[in-house]
Design a protein around this nucleic acid. Sequence first.
DNA 1: CCTTGATATATAAATAATTATATATGGGCT
DNA 2: AGCCCATATATAATTATTTATATATCAAGG
Lengths: 182, 182
Amino acid sequence: MLKYVLLGFLNYTPMTGYELKQFMDESTANFWHAKQSQIYTTLKKLEEDGLLKSHIEAQESRPDRRVYTINEAGRADLNDWLSQPETELQPRKEGLLVKLFFSAGSDKEKMLTQLRLLRDLHQRQMEHYETATHAFIRQIAEGMPQLEKDAQLWDATRRFGVLFEEMFVHWLDETIEKIEQW
Amino acid sequence: MLKYVLLGFLNYTPMTGYELKQFMDESTANFWHAKQSQIYTTLKKLEEDGLLKSHIEAQESRPDRRVYTINEAGRADLNDWLSQPETELQPRKEGLLVKLFFSAGSDKEKMLTQLRLLRDLHQRQMEHYETATHAFIRQIAEGMPQLEKDAQLWDATRRFGVLFEEMFVHWLDETIEKIEQW
DNA sequence: CCTTGATATATAAATAATTATATATGGGCT
DNA sequence: AGCCCATATATAATTATTTATATATCAAGG
């Protein structure tokens, strides 16, 4: 899947691995994240597979940049994937819930402290999507009317982040209340 | 993380890999899933690490069962993990959103058809948590008052599944409406 | 009688992802 | 002068996970 995130971004404009990481952290991290090392190794593999081409740009005050450019094969691969419908539910992974599931023997007050802390983290994350992520998307799309649809879809994914965090906070509130009655 | 799911279940009662898979599919699959092959290899590794012990139970009408039992080292490892607080947000992965993020060039009607289909899938998944998963949890805990707290926590994770699917359906409705206006 | 499905157990191979490092430059802080 | 941080690039080693395959038995359905 990271493959398509990288192809998708490079379909807008050539970029370095470093820049791709920055973009992902401010936009797709909400629903797809990757470590720097995975981005670099995946870019390398995509070039080997003939979907990307890279060239070195010399810099004076910084190490040289390796800029990746998508080619026709890459575009074809991306568009092929984009045209295939998603027809199945995708499994989630929430480590916190694993811990909670097996916590019947744990200390009540310790659990409550932890859940309240996580509640605040999720609340703050929600606000981050409302402010920082929102600003980032508007800034990218600003003054580029050809990106109007794109920006609407980017915003839809941002909105998912907001709704998810709201749901999470609500669920934590419910769960905290239940445990308080023990 | 699968390690702790397996230790957590085996902390209730000895089981085979097959049974663990069945349990996961009906309870934790909502927030942590695993393929059969991963469960078997992880069980093997946990036994090598000295956290589990297995023995063969002969059967007449079926192949022999390899039953795994948690030992003191396993319990200690599990309890140590359970006592460590979760203090950070955990990244999500939602492949559908990757596709949507890069779909500005896609056909409007095809997108709408797909999103409506997914809406129904999530709606049905929500109902599954409300009926089948709910019944499963009640059935396990029935007549075992010592599992009251456990059942409450299991139900809290089930409730997460319900809220998540409700949120997802709501988000899809929002997104569908937005795209309909293109 | 034959196929399919459920029960039950696994291994091999490949891919995906994480963790830990390593290098190099320059700016700002102490 | 020395240290940390940001920029920028990357590799090695390990762990996690998926996909594909293999075996064996019996029951149920066609």
